[in-house]
Design a binder for these strands. Sequence first.
DNA 1: CTGTATCCTTTTGGATACTG
DNA 2: CAGTATCCAAAAGGATACAG
Lengths: 145, 145
Amino acid sequence: MTITDAATARPADPAEFELPPACESGAFDAESSEARIVRDVLARVGDKWSLLVIRMLHEHPMRFTELQRSIDGISHRMLTQTLRNLERDGLVTRTSYPEIPPRVEYAATELGRSLALPVLGLVEWASTHHASITGARERFDVTRA
Amino acid sequence: MTITDAATARPADPAEFELPPACESGAFDAESSEARIVRDVLARVGDKWSLLVIRMLHEHPMRFTELQRSIDGISHRMLTQTLRNLERDGLVTRTSYPEIPPRVEYAATELGRSLALPVLGLVEWASTHHASITGARERFDVTRA
DNA sequence: CTGTATCCTTTTGGATACTG
DNA sequence: CAGTATCCAAAAGGATACAG
């Protein structure tokens, strides 16, 4: 993804991706724009934290600190940023109750919940095949010294 | 992922992840190690090119240059590196025919093909909902100036 | 509690030259 | 053709201080 520091550099140009400069001798637009779509979505879902947040919010709405506690290694800054991106993409909602101290609830949207489905498929694949991958890695690494 | 430059820094320590320093007051091992597994697999599949390579090889085996031509923006270096990582994880095989000039064929393994399934689910989700995301982004951005 | 801003390190990845 | 190595720019992300 572009969007260097979405939480920080707010007034910058949003929604800006690396459109390949319409290179001539390559694949066609149909294919390459579909590739962009896939990369685009995968970039959102594939970054370090988005999936884990989506997954937590798929169960029930949660507030900021609750999420931070339940996600283990996530930093304050990255949680904010991840939530902002997910909100921007219409995958979660943010509801702020003007109390004191402030309370903010995050929840998955319909879109976010629909994303959770294929994502959970991937999660299941990961659990099922993780050992195979680890094994393959070890074998690969020893044969290379 | 760790593995700074897998194609380059070969003799370094492989298979090394950021094990959280067994922090006391947080989630339990069961949860946090499962989270690592998910992040781990997602890191492989979620980087800039792996998925696209997996997807191409899911259709039929291909050789290096063929892949490079069909993937559009990928650089020589990143294709090598991505293939090396996928090979290491047991997701693709590399078969080199000692001809001159050399010919190398890459193919998805059984494991790689099984990964393609949930991945294609995600790809389908991406195609279906990409417009929603784009729309949400635009709405979000205009309400922020 | 929630969020923003700053600083700084690590990682990612492109360009490019060179090898068998 | 396939692969490796070097160099360098950009991006990701953690720590931390601070504000409402």
